[in-house]
Simulated scan of single mutants.
Amino acid sequence: MKAVVLAAGEGTRLRPLTEDKPKAMVEVDGKPILTHCFEHLVELGADELLVVVGYLKERIISHYGDEFEGVPITYSHQREALGLAHALLTVEEHIDDDFMLILGDNIFNANLADVVNRQQEDRADAAFLVEEVPWEEASRYGVCNTNDYGEIIEVIEKPEEPPTNLVMTGFYTFTPAIFHACHLVQPSNRDEYELSDAVNLLLQSGRTIDAIRMDGWRTDVGYPEDRDDAERRLREEREAREAAAEADDEEEEDADTELSVEADDA
């Protein structure tokens, strides 16, 4: 399965971190956000990375070249910042089957594989990783309405008064049908071609989109304090793993010592 990574953003709210680099190249825990995304996608089995670049695109292209951990990279240039649906259309010619889509400004430690597995079951036309957020934060995201079967029935982009607090997280799977919907999208009141509008067109045409509840966490790196939060979470998880490994080593040493004592007594 191919994977599309949207990494054309400038990241004005992240300044001064983005004064000399695109948003996706801001470092979190010692490596660019984009590297974190690539690592997840390679682990999920991506056989090609389609990276949409824009602002300071040469910083991304020169850093990664034409492959990442043996997986080929194809770059596509979004020449104007006209929204996510517009960005997605720049890779249409490269897609002829189901694919993954990740926004290149998110740090995940979550059940991304559940989304891919659901897509491969052929029971849905798309699957989204979704998350419940505090109500006061929901207006920052695409908000989802769902039915009793866990299927998405409507997406509302950054509503002033969110009807729910269930939001899209920035990881999706789609069939190529999404491209036809993107072509039909009209500019929003932000003068952008919104991915949420394309999703609603899919739904109106009778397509099924499953909502996969997030197990874990993610951080949308929109502000410098978000970067700090993601680094804290990653650091705490690394320290927890190291402590667990150290405890396992101590248990093995204690077990070896007991065996040695028993052998000497015998």
Rank of each mutant, 00 (worst) to 15 (best):
M1H: 10
A3M: 07
V5H: 07
A7K: 10
G9L: 07
E10D: 10
G11C: 05
R13D: 12
L17I: 11
T18F: 09
T18D: 07
K21I: 15
P22N: 04
A24T: 12
G30E: 05
L34Q: 09
L34F: 11
T35D: 03
T35V: 07
H36G: 12
C37N: 15
C37L: 13
E39R: 04
V42R: 07
V42N: 07
G45T: 11
D47G: 03
L50W: 01
L50E: 00
V52K: 02
V53F: 09
E58R: 13
I60H: 02
S62D: 14
G65Q: 07
E67L: 03
F68T: 06
H77R: 08
R79Y: 06
R79M: 11
A81E: 08
A81L: 09
G83A: 04
L84C: 03
L84Q: 05
A87V: 06
L89H: 01
V91Q: 03
E92L: 01
F99C: 01
I102Y: 10
A113L: 13
N117K: 14
N117G: 06
N117D: 15
Q120S: 10
E121N: 13
E121L: 12
A126P: 04
L129F: 06
W135I: 07
E136D: 10
E136N: 13
E136C: 05
S139F: 12
D148S: 15
G150N: 08
E151W: 10
V155A: 07
K158E: 15
K158M: 14
P162E: 03
P163D: 08
N165F: 02
V167D: 02
M168V: 12
T173I: 00
A177H: 01
F179C: 00
H180P: 02
A181P: 00
V185F: 01
P187Y: 04
E192N: 12
Y193G: 00
L195G: 04
S196T: 13
S196W: 13
A198N: 04
A198S: 05
N200E: 03
S205T: 12
A211H: 09
G216V: 13
G216N: 08
W217M: 08
W217F: 09
T219E: 15
V221M: 12
Y223S: 00
E225M: 02
D226V: 01
R227L: 03
A230I: 12
R232I: 11
R235S: 14
R235W: 09
R238M: 13
E239I: 14
A240R: 15
E242M: 11
A243H: 11
A247I: 00
E250R: 15
E251D: 14
D256C: 00
D256L: 11
D256R: 10
D256N: 04
T257R: 14
S260H: 08
D265G: 08
